[in-house]
Nucleic acid binder design. Structure first.
Length: 349
DNA sequence: TCTGGGGTCCTAGGACCC
DNA sequence: TCTGGGGTCCTAGGACCC
């Protein structure tokens, strides 16, 4: 037997929300299916997940439902059903943790990093795919890498229902010619700013010294982006239980809010829900954030430290309304959000 | 033409203190 | 009257992720 090594598997469920819906609606198999909002294309909402058939018609996550049905009029539209997906997700994660000798770091509803020590990570990946399928009747793709970033990026090349390897020896062969935005953690804005300093591709980023990156992005983000380009960074998952830093609630209103009274009532309702979330965990708020999107398109965020940590929804709502008034803007309100940062638990995060 | 709702982490710049 | 360096806290906002 050859020596074992540590590998990171990135397990990602295929078209997760749609796949869960197909379990209870098998007759929809092979059809363009879209899960989003309340399933009503006339409402303000976006696509959460589209089936592969719908993706072929140009429907993507984040696309407005109105536009999605215009692109794919024959699509079957389903409302988002959170409790069902949460239950399926819990089943998936429990299946991963049941594999002998693994360390599991959950990334979201439908994905997780799995650390394994083995001389044959591909066999482990195939075993995990089979175990998840047997337990949940759901398919997943698995990226295998020697770092978290490489495993995460690899998954897309394995979709659907496949696997893909990315490690230090093939990273630049596979990724070098691609735009920097192909990296996990490099979005359109950072991509633009990299291009402005002459870095267009992953290979160019990987070859860049830290200095210009620090100058452009700061002492922490700069070197971090450079590491992303080399596929470097953390090489082992962290299974420490997750502790929330903040809780927030936001709502897009189907009809814009036009008066201060409407805004006040909406803030009271949002603040009440935030307070419920905090109370459930026995946590105290330290700062309140208000997010407002005016019609059309303009987002404004305000932050204020509370005089004393509070879990009184009236105080939270008053604080948020004071912040709103301070904006001094009387345009129609399309979205409101209230978020509370929380005191760290004893012992810190 | 229309853009959800839940989060995380980082930076810039000003205030304030020693 | 003008001038420091360093540190910390706070506000406001940016960017990214699923």
């Amino acid at each position: 037997m050859t020596g074992t090594a540590r590998w990171v598997l990135h397990v990602d469920m295929d078209q997760f929300l749609v796949a869960v819906e197909l379990l209870r609606r098998p007759e929809l198999h092979g059809l363009p299916v879209i899960v989003g909002g309340r399933g009503d294309p006339t409402e303000r909402a976006v696509v959460s997940t589209a089936s592969y058939e719908a993706r072929e018609r140009g429907v993507r996550s984040g696309l407005a439902l109105k536009l999605a049905v215009r692109r794919c009029p024959e699509a079957v539209l389903l409302p988002v059903d959170f409790p069902v997906y949460e239950a399926a997700s819990a089943q998936v994660m429990a299946t991963l943790r049941a594999h002998p000798g693994v360390v599991v770091e959950v990334l979201g509803w439908d994905e997780a990093f799995v650390g394994v020590e083995t001389d044959d990570p591909l066999t482990t990946a195939l075993e995990i795919q089979a175990e998840v399928l047997a337990a949940t009747r759901l398919h997943c793709s698995i990226g295998i890498g020697d770092t978290l970033v490489r495993a995460k990026v690899a998954t897309d090349f394995g979709k659907p229902q496949g696997t893909f390897f990315l490690h230090r020896d093939n990273w630049l062969d596979v990724m070098g010619h691609r735009p920097t935005t192909a990296l996990w953690g490099v979005g359109p804005r950072i991509g633009q700013r990299l291009a402005a300093i002459g870095i267009e591709t992953v290979a160019q980023l990987a070859a860049s010294p830290d200095d210009p990156l620090v100058a452009a992005f700061g002492p922490s983000t700069g070197p971090h982006i450079g590491r992303l380009g080399r596929g470097g960074g953390r090489a082992w998952p962290d299974d420490t239980p997750w502790v929330a830093r903040a809780h927030g609630r936001e709502t897009t209103y189907q009809a814009d809010l036009l008066t201060r009274d409407e805004v006040a009532a909406a803030l009271g309702e949002l603040a009440g829900r935030v307070v419920d979330d905090l109370a459930r965990e026995g946590r105290a708020a330290t700062r309140v954030h208000l997010k407002v999107r005016f019609a059309p398109f303009f987002t404004h965020t305000k932050v204020r430290k509370l005089g004393a940590p509070t879990m009184d929804p009236a105080v939270l709502a008053e604080t948020a309304l004071a912040l709103f008034d301070a904006l001094g803007d009387d345009r129609p309100v399309r979205l409101l959000g209230v978020r509370a940062e929380m005191q760290p638990p004893a012992g810190g995060y």
